[in-house]
Design a binder for these strands. Sequence first.
DNA 1: TCCAACACTTAGTATGCGGATT
DNA 2: AATCCGCATACTAAGTGTTGGA
Length: 788
Amino acid sequence: MTNALSDEDVPLSQRKPSATSKVLATGKKRKSVTVKSETSVAHDDDHAPLKKKRATATAVAQTKAQSSGKEIKTEEKSAKSSASVKASPSPSKASGKSTKLNGNSKPTTEPDSDSDSDDKPLAKRKMKKADSKTEGEETSTQEKEEEEEEEFYKWWEAESNDHSVKWTTLVHNGVLFPPPYEPLPSHVKLKYNGMPVALPLEAEEVAGFFGAMLETEHAKNKVFQSNFFNDFKEILKQCGGSQLKIEKLEHCDFTDIFNYYEEKRAQKKAMTTAEKKKIKEEKDKLEEKYKVCFLDGRKELVGNFRIEPPGLFRGRGSHPKTGKLKERVMPEQVTINIGPNTPIPQPPDGHEWAEVKNDNTVSWLATWKENINGAQKYVFLAANSSLKGMSDYKKFEKARELKNHIARIRKDYTKELKDELMANRQRATAMYLIDVLALRAGGEKGEDEADTVGCCSLRYEHVAFKPPNTVVFDFLGKDSIRYYQEVKVDQQVYKNLKLFKKAPKKFGDQLFDRLDPPTLNRHLQNYMPGLTAKVFRTYNASKTMQDQLDKIENKGTVNEKYVAYNAANRTVAILCNHQRTVSKAHEQSVGKIEDKILEIKMQRYRLKLMMAQLDPEMKKSDPEYFQPDAELDDATIDRLIDQIVQREKDKVTKKFQKENEKRAAENGELLPESELKTRMKVVEELEAEYMKQRKTGKVDIKNGMTVEKLQAQIEKLTERIVNTTLQKKDKEDNSTVALTTSKINYIDPRLTVMFSKKYDVPIEKLFSKTLREKFKWAIESADANWKF
DNA sequence: TCCAACACTTAGTATGCGGATT
DNA sequence: AATCCGCATACTAAGTGTTGGA
């Protein structure tokens, strides 16, 4: 049960401990503690939060009484800060750069004075239009970039306007539905107790979903199996059943179905490039009309215009619903959002849309509700669109704005770590964790979701203590990615966490029982409008990147600088705990590198033997140098020799075959088998040499070989060993770290642009094509001196 | 006042492709 | 040419945070 703490010695790499047992064990308890809310008042000395109380009462009890004075203070503060924020607008201007960029940071229209805009705000629309026109003219000096550039500026400027209106005109072609189900050929059937079963098509499709996944980890997961099977039986029942009564998954044999889909896969793979190209062209043609839309008259790419196909839900971690049937989405479930007085995309023949809206306060083109969790799915514009770009830009500007407040915020929460009011103390502690460890906010989760947590939802079992001030965090975060860190924390934070864990709290209880994200975020708003927990992650990630980049010396080759950039990127990825599963091939490829290193060492040792034979005195004066490397035990050497010889033989054989094929094609005579034998002799000689060395410890020395030459060769090999070893280390260090997530979401792209320009590393090396498109705004606005 | 619904960002994984390697 | 390998992209699940209605 208490696995959370017991497996602290498990290497990071094998994260994702099956949390199944945990879910079961704690589910109920979790619920009982989750009440929260009342804290919103901040000054509830009388706290007395009903249920929550239970667990926490004791801990809290003593402290609250005197706290009222404090609370008042807090209120004052918040009032003050919000006022001051308004007074001192746009602290973001900083950059000095790009004059066009600043200016924004609008008048902080009270929280949501704009919520009014729900009803198609005609007036606003016009204003916006006008605005962008004029500004557009100002900047139009550099026309060369034509429409692209124009677009660029447009969204830039729009930014300073009403942010609740996303568009004034919107034209698009709706969504693309997945193709209908293709029935299995009649000879491919599910077998039940060895007997082929005739299934209604609807049920066959579902069986096929499972059959195709037979060899995946999912299909071996009990929860997945049972969820699938229940839904499968239900569908089967609904569409009339089958002659054979299907009752147990164990009696179902999906192998034929699996093989059928494997076969199809193989066929697809085996297609010639020409065939593939043709298929792709057809596909592109089909998709073409859905790929673009027109937003305020500008062409923009649509992101996910395809309706998600049916299948089995692949929940991450131990998701209670994993394996359930994700149903086919019908047009009747899809709502379209489009400009008024705009042609409405035609639903598929014989079908209708659920609804057609003209809501210009949202950015989605279509939406539907998914049947597993009842979650809303959307079709949005692509990442390189103006809408996404604008909000990305705003996100980073918001994070930069935090620079101006962070000192005060840190000072405050450091002080509040000792606040007598438990709620404040918890809040301060949480802020510390969010700020220093870059934890997520950690909202409440339901029973029917995977048991994962963030800061506010941390529980008793997720922290352990090592005096004097080390806290061991071990929990599953977003996507059930394990967060395991032993961190030295502020002494007071250490004390607090211990306090929050104190009896009567027990396994399953929340550490921060008087805090939740809304409460925390409300508090943060006092410092800066729009400040929420997630802003800290963005801020700290970008700040870290800036600091890391600043450390890089501007020298060496492009490649070296690129490596340094990646190292900086990696620091950020580690901060944010961005991981990836080690690829299947990883172990193998590390093994290969290891063998490579060993082979070089063997080679080197061989050269040393030669040297010793040529000049025995040398060995006497430095016997250690002539020792074989420790890893090179007899068994390893034998294995390596085998490997090398085999590899060489393969090479010779292959080459021989190839030549013959060529000759056959040119109708020349084939090389005789004897030729192959002759060639093979070389390899055999090589083998013999190795064997001789193994048996006698002596090696043959080529004519004209000198100690000096050997020395030079040995040096080269040693260098290769060092390099390859580094390469291996890099590979291993990288194997579990995902760099891309932070690059895409957290690191202000202008930092990368700055690096590119300042260090003369082509941006193409740092940003892939899609990222260059997504971050066009950054590429065009930052220079070598840009600072986060 | 509260919570569920909604909107949008953030996240890891599956897959296909293209370039390096042999 | 074949295979291997890593990267880019597609995909969609899983978060955060806001809002509107009971």
